[in-house]
């Protein structure tokens, strides 16, 4: 049984049909890729599944539970963690607090704990802090814990975003172009980190990427999206050799 299933999801922005009849089934532990030209609707699919928009039609099921129409924070706490295509870090907050914040839904000390600084709060926040440090270590930025994020280089900011998404304890991690804007060195490191995280935390990963090397190296199954429709789905070799994919998307890039 798949971990996450999307059945014939369609979404309109006004008159624009951004996603059409989209199906998806993610198995536990799988790494999946979503590729397609600019404006194909990839980010929109992420936003639909994670509850940012409610699909015009279709159904999203996470482990037997229908999550269509739930609030983003509810879906996130059910186990869909994500990063953003354009970094969305909190500009006045330090690195450690970013990761601690993503534990929000697990906090049980309540408002009274927050107001009066009860021992329970102290204990819980200390535990969260420990966990946060180990996540920062996992992605290799624990030495930056007390830095304000806006002072960090781009690659480090991406890692912080990844650690933050991991702190929500996702069953499936959604990565929207995790290597966008990185230099070759940062790119190689990021791929290593994604592999490491996947092995270490045993989660499924769904990633959008423009760089073919990344997708082909990491993913077991790849979907190709064009104008909101999946034109091909298969393993890296199948996708690489699919004439429709080459025609619609890969053609230019393979030559490069």
């Amino acid at each position: 049984m798949p971990l996450l299933r999307v059945d014939s999801m369609t979404h309109y922005f006004g008159g624009l049909r951004a996603v059409h009849n989209y199906d998806l089934a993610i198995e536990p532990g799988q790494i999946r890729g979503l590729i397609g030209p600019n404006g194909a609707g990839k980010t929109t699919i992420f936003n639909l599944i994670t509850g940012r928009y409610t699909p015009t039609e279709g159904k999203i099921v996470l482990e037997d539970r229908e999550i269509t129409g739930l609030q983003p924070h509810q879906i996130a706490s059910l186990g869909l963690g994500r990063t953003f295509q354009n970094l969305r870090l909190w500009r006045h907050m330090n690195v450690l607090d970013h990761v601690k914040m993503a534990h929000y839904s697990k906090i049980t000390y309540g408002l009274m704990g927050a107001f009066f600084g009860t021992p329970k709060r102290t204990r819980e926040e200390a535990e969260i802090e420990d966990e946060s440090y180990s996540l920062l270590e996992l992605v290799g930025v624990s030495h930056l814990a007390d830095q304000i994020v806006t002072n960090l280089p781009y690659g480090a900011q991406r890692r912080v975003e990844l650690a933050r998404a991991l702190a929500t304890q996702p069953k499936i991690l959604f990565l929207d172009e995790p290597t966008a804007g990185m230099n070759p060195e940062e790119l190689a490191q990021m791929m290593e980190i994604i592999r490491h995280v996947h092995a270490e935390l045993e989660l499924a990963i769904f990633l959008i990427e423009h760089r073919m090397k990344v997708v082909m190296d990491l993913c077991q199954v790849i979907q190709t999206l064009v104008f909101g429709e999946v034109i091909a789905e298969g393993n890296p070799d199948e996708i690489r050799n699919n004439p429709m994919v080459i025609d619609a998307y890969l053609g230019k890039e393979v030559e490069v």
């Binding site: 983003p72 996130a76 953003f84 870090l89 839904s105």
Partner: peptide, 10 residues
């Protein structure tokens, strides 16, 4: 947007 994606009930 980042807040509620990180489980914060905004």
């Amino acid at each position: 947007m980042a807040a509620d994606a990180m489980t914060v009930n905004t």
